[in-house]
Design a protein around this nucleic acid. Sequence first.
DNA 1: GCAAGAATGTCCAATATTTTACAATTTTAT
DNA 2: ATAAAATTGTAAAATATTGGACATTCTTGC
Lengths: 226, 226
Amino acid sequence: MLDLLAANTPSFIDSLSDGVRDQITRAGTLVRYAEGQLIHNRGDVKPGVSIVVSGSVQVGIYGADGSFVMTTQLGVGQTFGEFTLFADLPRTHDITAISPTEINQISAPAFNRLYDAEPDISRALLTTTLIRTHRLLEMMDAMRRLPMRERTAKVLFTLMQIAGGSDTFECRQSDLAFTLGVSRMSLSTALRGLIEIGLVETGYGQIRLPDADRMRAWVAKHCSAS
Amino acid sequence: MLDLLAANTPSFIDSLSDGVRDQITRAGTLVRYAEGQLIHNRGDVKPGVSIVVSGSVQVGIYGADGSFVMTTQLGVGQTFGEFTLFADLPRTHDITAISPTEINQISAPAFNRLYDAEPDISRALLTTTLIRTHRLLEMMDAMRRLPMRERTAKVLFTLMQIAGGSDTFECRQSDLAFTLGVSRMSLSTALRGLIEIGLVETGYGQIRLPDADRMRAWVAKHCSAS
DNA sequence: GCAAGAATGTCCAATATTTTACAATTTTAT
DNA sequence: ATAAAATTGTAAAATATTGGACATTCTTGC
């Protein structure tokens, strides 16, 4: 677990050799999305894998009242939609572009063809999926074990890593509060605590972690298990 | 998400053809564990994949004080240890046998050999891993969105599915409370509510879901998203 | 079969979190 | 540039959850 804190989630694309990466790129269709545009609807059944080529996307669920509950954000090189292929499930989340974003959409047949031909793909996919699972387990652990401020720090840090690098996180505090499973006021209090010790900066609709290294060290120290 | 409620997690072993299953069986060593015996220690680095052949195991973390925090239970055909292989991580959980249990321990080299030869293995592994990820996301969602009683029902039901079929869940209420992220008293209250409507029965060190179908229906009705 | 240990069930005070309400700030639209 | 809308910040009362204490039930070892 400590090792996980050391690095961002390696992206699916990064784990591939140049040749395979090119094949994957050619196998799909590049689609552009404007800021805020819907990419996939929860419930869609058309199977296929999507890869973020530029920009970033927000994964979550729209409530009946239009409110958006964010689960995570994904950055360049990250994939989504795998389980429409392998687990034969409808899409369970709504996905929207956070900024102008390019997505490589690969159809199920095209992906399967490549998958069978290039064993590296399955390894890369398993690696990213398993690491994601692992991060999820850690987030759950944080949600039950840690006090608010520590929980907030850990989840923020983990989300940043999954998203893949950038130190700025575009979201409303009310969304993040929901992601953490607390009220906006509790989050506000927790953030104030983290701002006081200089780990976090907040702005209108965004949260920044100005010093990733210090954040990592703090999380490792205050949020480790047992 | 609704579809997921319909079936247990298909086990890794079940997803394989007879031939591949035999190969896997022969590739490993069958090891027997007595009830309560430790199978893997958190922090172990020796990579390899383990498959439950008979019995069942408990996955969790031992605290410094000896307390055990359960994350999940795994039944026959389920695997663990995958990410020692694919994500190159140390084991992050302690694993103990709940009952007398047989485990097929497959070393990293042996598993890799098979993995490269039989593409079915990677598909089966991705399927179970992705479904597990998915269940985790749902559990997290339940933990933040639902009131105690509903949350308890949903997580109990999900855990049962992951474990793979049996209607009896061997664990102390204090452990389950921790899994749910609440105190034992809150869990006790929630369980009382579920017992009153006949969805749950409790005993000394065990929890039963006597009517899986009714439970499924109740969870689908009261715990669905948006 | 009995006693010791372990787990469950329930009460009440202490604590943490949420709810409600409103002010301050930032963005967006006109 | 200004008004309207959206987001953030803060404080109070209301609510839910926890922690401790103890009786009760069940299991295990002798």
